[in-house]
Simulated scan of single mutants.
Amino acid sequence: MKSFTIVEINELLKGELVGTCDEQITGAEQLERATAQQITFIGSNKFAKLWEASKASVAIVDAKIKLEPGDNRALIRVKNADLAMATLLEALEPAPPVLEEDIHPTAVVHESVVLGKGCKIGAGCYVGKNVVLGDGVVLYPNVSIFDDSKIGHHTVVWSGTVIRERSEIGNHCIFHINVSIGADGFGYRPSDDGRGLVKIPHIGNVIIGNYVEIGANSCVDRGKFSATIIGDGCKIDNLVQIAHNCILGRSCIMAGHSGLAGSVTLGDGVIIGGSASIKDHTTINSGAVIGAGSGVMGDVDAGKTVLGYPATDARDMLKQWVALKRLSKN
């Protein structure tokens, strides 16, 4: 178990230490649940009132919050408590599971596969023809990588993930459990006789940039003609659907249960809230924010925040909700 003194933690965070505490810190926890051996954090005045009753010995606190440590307790004042806590959690994080063999005997690796230095391939994996794995790639048990795919260096792929043929994955990516990359897009048209549906083949691929993280059970479908593209630094939550020929710019965020229909384009830094749905052939321009549960039916301007179903300017939608609430009381 890792442990740190408050002085060591303060040095790591480059904060201002206020108060004293002789406890060894072995973990982190919410204010209400923390013990004397755990550190907590306070990012807004709303939670500052909970500090007095908390059993935590030390808290990381936004510098703007006025708070005193108390007896045998300490505060570490920082510019941004959320970012400081992220740094500390990285230091406290346990080591990941270790794959003791470079290639497990039960893995199936085609003879044409190109392996970089330090690759690890776990039990039950399948790596197909002409796949290229960069240095330090880790495939945990039961991952499937199909023909002609390329995975950049130090990418980690967790169990159950399937990467279909011709996919191109960047460096330092993380794919969590049961991610699907490159499945067929959802495309059908009524048959001439009107008695069935004709499947439209999707012959494109998926291209994913560097430092992309995709959460468990999320899907990125292949393009119909060219590629579905996920830009550098995008972070995709669990249970997210990205349909064929979507293009995401840099550092976009999609929260759980959100989805993009076919050929949606996101600019850089777009944020999409949980359970939001985006209509096909829609463009969400850079810096826009889509509120949770919203249904976007048309293009969204850069930097704009929209909300509701159908989504509209967030301020206008909030006014509508207030008006409806007033009407219901009459």
Rank of each mutant, 00 (worst) to 15 (best):
E90L: 13
H257D: 09
I230D: 13
S3W: 04
I25H: 06
S3F: 09
S226I: 03
Y309V: 10
A261P: 01
P190W: 08
L17I: 11
S275Y: 06
Q38C: 05
I39P: 10
K279S: 15
V143M: 00
K235P: 07
D221I: 05
L88T: 10
R250F: 02
D22V: 10
V109E: 12
V162K: 13
C219M: 04
N130K: 05
A74E: 14
P141N: 05
I278Y: 01
L99I: 08
P97W: 11
A314K: 12
S294G: 11
D135S: 04
F4E: 04
I200S: 06
P190R: 02
G262K: 03
D62L: 04
D237N: 11
K117Q: 12
V220I: 15
G196W: 08
I76D: 02
T40P: 08
L260Y: 01
R315S: 08
G15M: 03
M1I: 15
M254K: 03
D299L: 08
Q320R: 01
V114G: 04
E23P: 00
D102N: 11
T26F: 08
G269C: 11
K319Y: 03
L99A: 02
I145K: 01
T5R: 09
R164F: 13
T283D: 08
E52G: 05
R164A: 12
A84T: 10
L266S: 02
N45I: 04
A311V: 06
N285R: 15
A95S: 14
I203E: 13
D102W: 10
V7P: 00
R73V: 08
D221N: 06
I181L: 13
A34T: 06
E213F: 02
R222K: 13
G215W: 07
L50D: 15
G27N: 12
R189G: 06
